[in-house]
Design a protein around this nucleic acid. Sequence first.
DNA 1: AATAACTTCAACCGCGTTGGC
DNA 2: AGCCAACGCGGTTGAAGTTAT
Length: 248
Amino acid sequence: MGRAPCCDKANVRRGPWSPEEDSALRRYVELHGTGGNWIALPQKAGLKRCGKSCRLRWLNYLRPDIRHGGFTDEEDDVIFSLYKSIGSRWSIIASQLPGRTDNDVKNYWNTKLKKKIMAAGEPLITKTHHQSLSPLPAVPAPTVNVEVFFPNDIENTTSALAPVNSCNLGYPFGLPQLPPADDVSASSSASSSSIPVASENFDDFFLPELGFSYWNTDLLTAGFSSPSYPPLMATCANSEVEHQGIYS
DNA sequence: AATAACTTCAACCGCGTTGGC
DNA sequence: AGCCAACGCGGTTGAAGTTAT
């Protein structure tokens, strides 16, 4: 037995959205918000559409902050860099590109950027999502020292040495929230004596063969962040692994 | 001008995750 | 703790548009 369908397919419209449907959905969301319930929304908005379809249409096309049009070279760089690091995790990649959706980034990668990069002779070495989450038992959880620099930001440039017992070096899921301009506590924490304690899952994320394009989420949470991010440069070294790189 | 081949991207599908009960 | 509805995501599809022959 398969999964139950999310809606009654016989009684919902499918395929491309008409301008009338777009304006009905836009008007409803602008007046009432989504109410946190996409399933109930189409009926309230007078649409013969599946809630899932409404959600997708809003998120990928109708949202006011969506950017349409071609990708810039800077965006290309971000996509390629992140794809190399984390693979096809499009929602995370898109979250670093204001106004772009995961669907946009995915389509752009699959139809244009991948070909462009291959034509340029760049190797497309990456990890799939599942591979990147697989433990690597060959790498023992080490004690590491992490040194942090913010080359473009005087406020945060103070390098900080943060000894941690084990380190979940991972791509910074949820990039650091920028502290308010008058909030000095976040930026000063990077150089304070308050050492963040990393979590236990070092080998969940550590991919030594890719170099240090990974970062410790706990350190970011603790305030190792910069308004000028990227680039963020860091070194990570211990007796068994040593990496240095620039995230950009 | 016709049409085949190719490209683009909006939309769909189904699975994993989350959160409320 | 377990169930289940809803959400969110990544992979895939297919219609529409564009280019080549």
